[in-house]
Simulated assay, not measured.
Amino acid sequence: MLEVHDFLRYSRPMNLNEVGVEGQLKIKKAKVLVVGAGGLGSPILTYLAASGVGHLGIVDFDRVEIHNLHRQILFQESDMGQYKAILAANRITQLNPHIKVETYQEKLTAINIQSIFESYDYIVDGTDNFATRYLVNDACVQFNKTLIYGTILGFQGQLAVFNHRQSKDLRAIFPEPPDPSDVPNCSLNGVLGTFPGIIGTMMAQETLKVILDLNPLHNQLVIIDTFNWKIQTLVF
């Protein structure tokens, strides 16, 4: 049930007819796992925590490096060398001490993914490589988990919701991951610091819409071109 501090903290979203007390309770009861605490994960975790998602999980085995700091806004220079998952958990707990946060400082594999995923209702993919994206997608299909998906490359981003209420999954659009030799090395890809914030915030918004059952994307891929400010929605 909602407590006094919930009514005080979340009065603005609860003023929305689409949310109200019942919707805020859904948010509080939601269990969301965010895979990746970097450029996308930072805004996703920040806004889901601020919005009152009651149980958040963070999967990330990386440590903070100086080249992360222009876009991974949960971290600062004094954090270099420390685990992102632990730092992210500490920061969002400071933002909202009324939520539960769990961390997994390990690389997702076919062996550990079920044990990590099984406690969560919704999976949010903030990863930066195709191997992990397909691993996450296939596990969501296998274990019947809703997947909120987002990617960025250069000035273009993508957003989708997979495997939700009988919707299709990533392989319905891209049946197989690309050949690694055809994909630019992640460490060489350029990105403006603001762009992961844009896509990550959209992913957090779509996650809340899924939790609230507010007409989330269904067999649709949104493509966002921030260079020319064009947005397309492809139906698949």
Rank of each mutant, 00 (worst) to 15 (best):
D79T: 07
M80E: 13
M80S: 08
M80C: 14
G81Y: 08
G81S: 04
G81M: 08
G81L: 10
Q82K: 15
Q82M: 08
Y83L: 15
Y83Q: 12
K84T: 12
K84W: 09
K84V: 04
A85K: 02
A85F: 09
I86C: 00
I86P: 00
L87S: 01
L87G: 01
A88I: 11
A88M: 12
A88H: 05
A88R: 04
A88Y: 07
A88Q: 06
A89L: 01
A89K: 15
N90F: 00
N90Q: 15
R91H: 01
R91I: 01
R91V: 09
R91C: 00
R91M: 01
I92H: 00
I92G: 00
I92R: 00
I92P: 00
T93C: 03
Q94T: 09
Q94R: 11
Q94G: 14
Q94S: 10
Q94D: 11
Q94E: 13
L95N: 06
N96E: 09
N96W: 05
N96M: 05
N96A: 05
P97A: 03
P97C: 02
P97F: 02
P97Q: 07
P97I: 02
H98K: 04
H98E: 15
I99C: 01
K100L: 12
K100D: 14
K100I: 10
V101L: 11
E102Q: 15
E102N: 14
E102R: 10
T103C: 12
Y104H: 15
Y104I: 02
Y104L: 02
Y104G: 01
Q105S: 15
Q105H: 10
Q105R: 13
Q105L: 10
Q105V: 09
E106C: 11
E106Y: 04
E106T: 15
K107R: 15
K107N: 01
K107A: 08
L108F: 06
L108H: 05
T109L: 08
A110M: 10
I111Y: 12
I111V: 07
I111H: 12
I111Q: 14
N112Q: 08
N112H: 06
I113A: 07
I113Y: 10
I113N: 04
Q114S: 09
Q114H: 14
Q114N: 09
Q114R: 08
S115Y: 03
S115A: 11
I116M: 11
I116G: 08
I116E: 07
I116Y: 07
F117D: 04
F117E: 06
E118R: 13
S119T: 10
S119N: 14
S119M: 04
S119C: 04
Y120V: 09
Y120Q: 09
Y120M: 09
D121F: 04
D121I: 04
D121Y: 04
I123A: 02
V124Q: 09
V124A: 09
V124N: 06
V124C: 10
D125V: 13
T127F: 03
T127Y: 04
T127D: 03
D128I: 11
